[in-house]
Amino acid sequence: MGIILAWYANKIGHGVMLWGREASRNYQDFVHKRTNEYLRLPEDIRLTNEIGDAIQFADVILIAISAQELRGFAKQLNSIQIANKTFVLCMKGLEMESGKRLSQVFNEEIQPPVNLAIWVGPGHVQDFVNDIPNCMVIDSDNIDTTKLLVEGLGSETIRFYYGQDLLGNEIGAAAKNVIGIAAGMLDGLGYASLKGALMARGTKEIARLVRTMGGNEYTVYGLGHLGDYEATVFSKHSHNRRFGEALVRKERFEKLAEGAATVKALLRLSSDYNVIPSFRKETIQKSN
């Protein structure tokens, strides 16, 4: 995802430096060939394996790494001058062991004051590189940060909407990956017609969780959750849907599926906030 973000920001006129770990095969492919299976990077996008150089280069830093690596990554940033910079979390997940939202994880580890936002919503790399447009969401606790990013990143390819519920959009975006895995499992089992029930009931359950946690339950019915997983559950491109399908077919799946870790985090939140899925409550009541 980091590659497409760099490509997109460059495409709409921003100066871009792309950071990657030196040992990463993906990073080395771009150093030597400037291409991967999805796209070719323009020559004016600079590449670096020095995180300090990338941070100092930009006023706005887009982060697209595995959600489970965010805490360790954020700790590294404290040795760099980052005060008053704007960070945008572009991945969708929850910290597996704690169940914490990614904005919470980031803020817990960052010491200087920074601006923080999230970028969520439907869209796949394969579509964006072919100029197939979509709608997405920027959300932040600071409306000025939201406005800055919506105005600076919007284009004919991506229309951004103003998020007004950071908690709801983060939980919803993370949960859509879990729904995606479930949809893939249905595909693998030959039960694709059950996707309607999955989407309807899944949305309801996540809305209950968001409301109990203090967010706006109606956020779940927007682009950050329902809009995103409607794209996910029917997409041939979705890693999470493909992971679920491979899982029930007992096939190997090599790419990142964030929903696999998010399942555990959601179960923890369900327990912590005493939000038991409706089917489990019904089963408990009948057994009693």
Results as ranks from 00 to 15, higher is better:
G2I: 05
I4M: 10
L5W: 15
Y8S: 03
Y8K: 00
N10R: 13
N10T: 00
M17K: 13
W19S: 00
R21H: 10
A23L: 13
S24M: 02
R25W: 08
Y27C: 06
D29C: 03
V31F: 02
T35Q: 14
N36C: 02
Y38C: 02
L39W: 07
R40W: 09
E43R: 11
D44R: 11
I45R: 06
L47D: 02
A58M: 07
D59I: 07
I61Q: 08
L62F: 14
L62T: 01
I63P: 04
R71L: 09
L77H: 07
L77W: 03
L77F: 10
N78I: 03
A83P: 02
F87A: 03
V88F: 09
L89Y: 06
K92T: 00
G93Y: 05
M96D: 05
E97D: 14
E108Y: 01
P112I: 10
P112G: 09
P112A: 08
P112S: 09
V114I: 15
V114H: 04
V114W: 04
L116W: 00
V120P: 01
G121K: 02
G121H: 04
G121A: 08
P122M: 09
G123V: 05
V125H: 00
V125T: 15
I132C: 09
P133N: 09
M136P: 03
D139L: 04
S140N: 05
S140Y: 01
S140R: 03
N142W: 04
T145H: 05
T146I: 13
E151W: 08
G152L: 10
G152D: 12
L153Y: 07
L153N: 03
L153K: 05
T157M: 14
I158D: 07
I158Q: 08
I158M: 08
F160P: 09
Y161M: 10
Y161V: 10
G163M: 03
D165R: 03
L166T: 09
L166Y: 05
L167R: 04
E170I: 08
I171D: 01
A174H: 06
G180V: 05
A182M: 11
A182F: 06
G184H: 08
G184F: 02
L189F: 15
Y191E: 10
L194K: 12
G196F: 11
G196M: 10
A197Y: 12
A197F: 15
L198H: 01
M199S: 14
T203P: 04
E205T: 07
A207N: 04
R208Q: 09
V210H: 01
T212S: 12
T212H: 06
G215M: 00
E217Y: 06
V220Y: 07
Y221E: 12
Y221D: 12
G222M: 04
G222K: 00
H225P: 00
H225Y: 15
H225D: 10
Y229N: 14
Y229E: 07
E230D: 12
V233N: 02
V233C: 13
F234D: 14
F234Q: 14
K236N: 13
R242N: 15
F243A: 09
F243M: 07
G244N: 09
E245V: 03
V248L: 11
K250F: 13
R252L: 14
E254R: 12
K255C: 06
A260D: 11
A261E: 14
V263D: 04
K264N: 04
L266P: 03
L267G: 11
L267W: 12
S271C: 11
S271I: 12
Y273Q: 05
V275S: 01
